[in-house]
Amino acid sequence: MFKRFDASNDVSTSTQVKASVQRGIKSQISTSHPSITDDILDELLPKKSPLVQYKIGPHLMLYCRQHEGGGDEPVFFQHRDGPILPTLKFVHKYPKLEFTNVTVDKGAIPFMLGGANVMCPGLTNAGGEMPPDEDDKAGLQKGDGVVIYAEGKELPLAVGFMTMSSINIRKKNKGTGIEVCHFLGDGLWGTDDIQ
């Protein structure tokens, strides 16, 4: 999604996000990442300084936080009606925040850094990890946004959304399990702030 993203070219319009919309964004984030409460979010994204929304192409929105030194720091993005996902720089900055996450095995790392999607075996092999399923209730539903960590590494290397539920991934164990939206080394990763 951001593989060839270039902040100076691909960003079309910027608008300040309305307070009500910002509230909606926050509640979406806190429902999809249960351990991040509204209080924490209020501290990360203060009500005083509104978020700035940048449009990238027709369907992709980038939400940025205003910086003191000028420029806007990308913090979240959303494609169409998909999940609202954090940027990697933001996740690295607050390592104590627990986003909904999965871990891929070591073999998948070089492919992931090239921007590949996560295939099911990368999650089910030894070294891969997903939230446990309980009976019929899947740990992760199809379409859920996740932060992707790697086996043996501290920092996450990509964010994406599930294309199968975690039950199906364990059962079928074939094909794309997570579609990667943003990974280490892509265009968004190289964007520290937008002017």
């Binding site: 409460t37 209080d39 924490i40 501290e43 990360l44 720089k89 690295h92 900055k93 607050y94 390592p95 104590k96 925040l97 920092l155």
Partner: peptide
Amino acid sequence: SVTITTPQSV
């Protein structure tokens, strides 16, 4: 929450 939301330099 203060400890959680303090940015770390990476």
